[in-house]
Amino acid sequence: MPIKDYIRERFFPHMWCPGCGHGTVLNSLLRAVEQLGMSKNEIVVVSGIGCSARISGYVDFHTLHTLHGRALAFATGVKLSKPELNVIVPMGDGDALAIGGNHFIHAARRNIAMTAIVMNNKIYGMTGGQFSPLTGVGGMATTAPYASIDRSFDVVELAKAAGATYVARSTAFHAQECTQMIHDAILHDGFSVVEIMTQCPTHYGRKNKKGGPAEMIKEFKDITTPIGSKAKQENPGLIERGVFVEKDLPEYCAEYDKIIERAQGGA
């Protein structure tokens, strides 16, 4: 299969649990890269810590497996120092929005051309099922044994407010849509965020009685709807999928090149 050209096959089968949605995100990411036809040498994948972060070890690009929450900070250094590289940052929900929340909003604010893929499974999987800032009120977790009273972030609203210039949301169920969004996000000349809702059958699923992997992935079909759909009007509780923001604004590295020109006495 052509996407196998982009993975480090010797590490498969991967370490994710049976039915983990992160594997589907990897699948979509590889298809997006294949469609783009980019050289493996011009892609850098930077990840933090957690289940999601293990993606970097499986893909045959330049890969940087960093610290919990800090992936976007490392990625900023990679990108600004060598803007011709395509920088992709797969992140978990806790990684991106708890410990890494500050780096997330500032990368968005700068509009530096990188792609953050937030794999939102509403839980800390690697450490055993503690609640994340995406778990939401009522969610069960090892650190919310009486149900969580913490309100959750909305990744899309947060990314929009912080200034990301491409913001999209999909789910592991909608794998084709994910591939298209990741494809477009990588091509986007600015900071792009793709939230992908993924199932964690082992921790979130078990704690919250969501059934097995198949039940969980099918639920994404039932609880989401395309942006602006009639279904949303009838059922405001549905989560919208689609591209929320796509706009052209000055990109950070390009703007810095102008600073260099000015500093060197040019325009």
Binding site: V46, L67, A73, F74, G77, V78, L80, I260
Partner: peptide, 22 residues
């Protein structure tokens, strides 16, 4: 290239990333 980061954590992370590109 100069960048003012959001904190010292990200500052050291950014220079490590930039060191890796040579």
């Amino acid at each position: 290239k100069f960048i003012q980061m959001e904190d010292e954590i990200s500052s050291i992370c950014a220079i490590i990333g930039a060191s890796l590109t040579g």
